[in-house]
Simulated assay, not measured.
Amino acid sequence: MILSFGAKNFWSFKDGFDISFELNSKVPKDISMGRSTSSVIGVKGANSSGKTQILKALDFFNYLGHRTFIANRESLYVESFFDNDDPVELYIEFETKAIRYTYEIELTKKEILRETIYKKKSRKTPIIERIKNQITKRTSEYSDLDLISLKPYASLINTVPNFKLESIGNDIENIYDYFGNIIGNVGARGALSDAEIYCYKEASQYYSDSPEALEFTTRIINKCDPSITRIDILDRTNEKGDREFFPIFYCDDIQYSKNWLTIYDLSDGTQALFKRLTQYWNVLLTGGVLVMDEFDTHLHPELLPILVDLFTDRNTNQKDAQFIFTSHNLEIIDHLGKYRTILVDKVNGESYCYRLDEIPSEVIRNDRPISNLYREGKLGGVPKL
């Protein structure tokens, strides 16, 4: 689970931001669900306030772990505040396989300046540090790192798995795997459209290979459209001779000879659910992190808490998966409460953010709606129209 992450000089955040998932003893039990770390965080704010930039930081860790060790790379896909020359700094503190890690990196578009991995048992200890293309600090179990050549554009996390090092610890592999399980609809340039990342044929093949995932999706779609009681995945051979998969949605209570629909007969919202829920299922199954920008697009407001509660309910979230999202829906704040809501604002082109429980005020209480306070502009993060 992510405990906290942040960045400095990253996109519109000049002085930086820190997002904490940690919950203290003051958090009510119906919010914490007995966890010391939240499984959901919602990010609110006006258009262009910087909400998506926060999510980009998480996608950037996936990028560092899996998409930098590429031949002929000439730059790193990172943006500083108004493209200034100072380095960008990012960090993430997380726990995986019962081990707590902190990963820090400083870089520019031209090179990685510093990369440090800390491991915490009884205390936080640096186990590997890289300054530019040199390993400057390492524990004895990582002596084989001396055998590899680092590149200015490739992270350690993405470089090491490409070498067959016989005597090396499991920490880099653990971090590599964890960063690979940060998925969603956010890329280097912002939110990706459904058409860019979701395909009903690929989703159908996923469901064909995973009947449990199909059952999961059918239950949720049935809540959205009770007439749909069953989804079958069929296959056919296309004109190229390839096998492709497609869904049929059955309405078993319809008393006609035709009681089924194709995906093209469905609303945009139901189509979106069918495709997007593959990622929800995958993250819940692996204990990963789902990063969704405007996750409410095409979806009815009353469906949103159902999706959020997939992560708060221990029955559906047994692997401590996490969900961080942005949304323009207002009422979702009341569902999240002040401990799980981040507000983002911007002044003179610079973004800043804060968790609602950081506001020193008795106005915000867990037993009162927060949305009215937000609507009235008492909490910040609203458009200045």
Rank of each mutant, 00 (worst) to 15 (best):
I172Y: 01
P305N: 00
S20G: 05
E111M: 11
E141K: 13
T341G: 07
L299Y: 07
S155Y: 05
F81E: 04
I220C: 01
A154C: 07
G65N: 09
S38H: 04
S351D: 07
G16Y: 11
T312P: 10
Y339K: 06
L214S: 02
I157D: 02
D171W: 06
E95W: 00
H335D: 13
K44W: 12
Y103C: 11
I197K: 13
Y207E: 04
E331A: 10
D293G: 04
D194V: 06
Y198L: 10
V40A: 05
E166Y: 05
L64T: 06
N238Q: 07
V40F: 01
V291M: 08
S20Y: 02
G180A: 09
L261M: 10
F249R: 02
L113C: 05
T341S: 15
L290I: 00
S48E: 11
S80I: 12
I254V: 12
T108C: 09
L192T: 03
N133V: 04
E331H: 10
A46R: 10
F82G: 01
Y198V: 07
Q255D: 15
G241M: 08
Q318P: 01
T218V: 04
E93W: 00
I324T: 05
N174L: 05
P369M: 04
P247K: 09
G190T: 04
N329V: 12
I182R: 09
K223D: 04
K56V: 04
I135K: 07
I172C: 06
E166G: 01
G34Q: 03
F69S: 13
H298D: 09
N72K: 13
T52N: 05
E302A: 12
R375Q: 05
V308R: 13
E79I: 06
E244F: 13
I127C: 02
F249W: 04
S122F: 14
S361N: 10
C353P: 01
E141G: 02
V382Q: 02
W11F: 15
F325N: 04
L156F: 02
L336M: 09
I117R: 03
L330H: 03
T159P: 01
A188Q: 11
N222V: 05
N170E: 14
F69L: 05
I168A: 06
W11D: 11
K223S: 11
S75K: 14
T159W: 00
N72G: 02
E111F: 10
F61W: 12
A98N: 15
F13M: 02
E358C: 01
N62W: 10
E350Y: 00
L107E: 03
S48P: 00
I228H: 00
S149G: 07
L266G: 01
S80V: 10
Q134C: 04
F21R: 09
A272F: 15
L310D: 00
E202S: 14
